[in-house]
Every structure is written in C-alpha cells, then in structure tokens.
C-alpha cells in the first residue's frame, strides 16, 4: 500500500501539471502493478485544475485500463476535487486498454 500526499507537493492549489506528471511517472506507474492499493491523499488541497488531474491519472487509466480504479483511491477530496476527478475519469472511460 502506498499513500501519496498531494498537499506536500502542490500546496492548497493543485495546478502545476509538471508536479502531476512527476507523481504519475515516479510514484504511481512504477508501483501500480506491484501494490494492491495506492492512495492519492488530497487533504488540505482546496482545488485542482482539470489539467492537473488529467496529468495525474489519465495515462494510468489509459495504460492499465479503467479497472485500475479498483486499486487507485482518492482520499480526503473535497467536493470540487471529487467532481474534477469524476470528469477526467468520465472522459477517459473508453480510452484505456480493455480488461
């Protein structure tokens, strides 16, 4: 199980895609098959841009398929961030590999 604290990297506004890309490349993708659960913890993050969320998870969904959401969990998200994640997951639904 891995837990990634987003606030530590972005502060209360998650808008920097470079950071999202780095989290995805270094902390999610290399472990997604090895770990049973990865938690993305948004505690203290007030908002996130669509670009940030897209850079964070879209490639994970594309590469691993939508089933990856069975092991990728979003923790302590406020309503706005939940909705933003919901939108990205929505438009990525039929782009990933088929499971």
């Amino acid at each position: 199980m891995i837990e990634i604290k987003i606030y530590k990297k972005t502060g209360n506004f998650a808008g920097n895609k470079d950071i999202a890309k780095e989290i995805r490349a270094k902390e999610i993708l290399p472990f997604i098959r090895k770990e049973d659960k990865i938690f993305l913890d948004f505690e203290n993050v007030n908002s996130a841009t669509q670009s940030f969320v897209h850079a964070l998870i879209s490639d994970v969904i594309r590469k691993e398929g939508i089933k990856v959401l069975d092991k990728l969990f979003f923790k302590n998200c406020n309503e706005t961030i939940q909705k933003m994640i919901g939108i990205v997951v929505e438009y990525m639904q039929d782009t990933g590999k088929k499971n």
């Binding site: 895609k17 890309k21 995805r24 669509q50 670009s51 897209h54 850079a55 879209s58 490639d59 594309r62 990205v88 438009y91 990525m92 039929d94 782009t95």
Partner: peptide
C-alpha cells in the same frame, strides 16, 4: 487520440 495524451486532454 481520444482522451488526449498523458499531459493534454484538449479540455482547458
């Protein structure tokens, strides 16, 4: 590609 790349979705 549908869904864009890992960095761009064409939604901004």
């Amino acid at each position: 590609k549908v869904g864009g790349t890992g960095e761009n979705a064409g939604a901004g």
